[in-house]
């Protein structure tokens, strides 16, 4: 083939230049490496630290929808999280996050705190903390999985959401549940399957004490089957809905499903 001959001719010319030029071949070799490495390096650097091309966003959204359906297929009410026996509870190292600039504390001038359960339910109800405590209580020592990558163990005490649902009797069309809080406009909506997982609960106790203001008191949503940001703290309302209602972090671009 002519291009093979051409290739060899060019190589010969190149080597001719390298051999004849005094000290030239060392420079050319370096030049070759610098050009090759430099081109690849420049292409990589251009991408570094960037969020990636804008046009990819639609593909990423598509992938997220597909991932959600895969996650829903993997989801089982029988899959349980159990904290390792040799692992220590986080205790005071358990991170306390909230949206408001200061620790949100229930404003007692609005009356005593109560949890409103409403939406597509047969009997909308309000539960005081004492009402919640009268429902069957569970205590489970489980992992907290944060979207950031850390995990923390605590013992949580509360009432299973499925037990609460049994009281208010949601309609069959209630496929989603919105969990709202008094921490600014924080809320996160869930699929009903995850909300009724046996480990999903309205927690009012943590590590044997009543839930403090730093961790979402008087009561919060707690479950190991969703990433931490899906677990609404400072809970005020549980609303059963026919459609999903986004969420504080989901609306900012984190995955809505956020399943584990």
């Amino acid at each position: 083939m002519t291009d093979a001959r051409d290739f060899e001719r060019r190589i010969a010319a190149l080597t001719e230049r390298m051999v004849t030029a005094r000290g030239g071949h060392a420079l050319d070799r370096r030049h070759f490496l610098l050009t090759g490495g430099g081109t690849i390096g420049a292409a990589l650097l251009a991408a570094c630290g960037s969020p990636g091309p804008k046009r990819a966003q639609r593909l990423l959204d598509y992938a997220e929808r597909k991932n959600e359906s895969v996650e829903r297929v993997l989801f089982r009410h029988t899959s349980m999280d159990v904290a390792g026996k040799n692992a220590r509870n986080a205790g005071t190292a358990f991170p306390a996050y909230f949206i408001a600039p200061t620790v949100p504390i229930w404003d007692a001038s609005q009356g005593p705190w109560a949890l409103e359960v409403s939406g597509m339910v047969a009997t909308p109800m309000r539960f005081s903390l004492a009402d919640l405590q009268r429902l069957p209580a569970v205590t489970q020592r489980i992992n907290h999985y944060c979207v950031e990558g850390w995990s923390a163990i605590a013992s949580w005490t509360g009432v299973r959401l499925r037990d609460l649902a049994a009281v208010v009797r949601p309609a069959p069309g209630a496929r989603y549940v919105d969990f709202q809080s008094f921490d600014d406009d924080y809320h996160e909506s869930w699929d009903i399957e995850s909300a009724t997982h046996p480990q999903t609960m309205i927690a009012y106790g943590m590590d044997g004490a009543f839930l403090g203001a730093a961790h979402g008191g008087p009561a919060r949503l707690y479950s190991p089957v969703k990433l931490g940001y899906k677990n609404t703290k400072y809970l005020t309302k549980v609303v059963f809905l026919p459609t999903r209602n986004g969420g504080y972090w989901s609306d900012q671009g984190y995955e809505w499903y956020g399943g584990i």
Binding site: A47, C48, G49, S50, P51, G52, A56, L59, L60, A63, E64, N67, V147, E148, Q252, G253, Y254, E255
Partner: peptide, 14 residues
């Protein structure tokens, strides 16, 4: 790559 945690997660999971 990814710009922020959520963006990087979308790239990673796609």
């Amino acid at each position: 790559f990814g710009g922020w945690l959520g963006g990087a997660r979308h790239w990673h999971f796609a």
